[in-house]
């Protein structure tokens, strides 16, 4: 088994870890949500690369084409993209509310305000 054939998963893992790093190391809430989105997109890329067969055509039925890529991951990821945007919208709405309540979107300042309270 050739090891280099897994390069798509390595790209995905790099992006996933970049997103995770942003989420745990940055204090800014908008930045955290951007990190979550990077993480999410890496999972999308992973699923789509599962569905790909070398040299395959898009799964639109046509005469004379025999090799299609797998339609099932595409369907799942279509659903996941839309749900992802919905959750992003909810997170951003929470950020706006936190900003209204605390006057800041930095995690450190929110914590210190909570301690003072």
């Amino acid at each position: 088994m050739d090891v280099l054939g897994h390069y798509n998963y390595w790209i995905v893992i790099f992006l996933m870890m970049a997103g995770l790093y942003t989420v745990i190391s940055r204090g800014n809430l908008v930045k955290k949500i951007a990190g979550l989105n990077i993480f999410q997109t890496s999972v999308f890329i992973m699923f789509i690369s599962f569905g790909y067969i070398s040299g395959s055509a898009p799964p639109i039925l046509e005469d004379g084409v025999t090799l299609y890529s797998n339609p099932l991951p595409h369907v799942l990821i279509l659903t996941a993209i839309v749900v992802g945007v919905a959750t992003t919208a909810l997170g951003l709405a929470l950020v706006v509310r936190i900003r209204e309540a605390y006057g800041t979107i930095e995690e450190e300042e929110i914590h210190s305000q909570d301690r003072d309270f």
């Binding site: 789509i48 790909y52 945007v85």
Partner: peptide, 28 residues
């Protein structure tokens, strides 16, 4: 996604991911 033979997903990602998400983040 287009390169990976998934045009439907690519449309959705371009419209929803690049479009709506960016607008939402800018509004925030």
């Amino acid at each position: 996604f287009v390169a990976l033979a998934a045009p439907d997903v690519a449309f959705t990602e371009a419209v929803v991911g690049a479009g709506i998400s960016t607008v939402l983040m800018l509004a925030t």
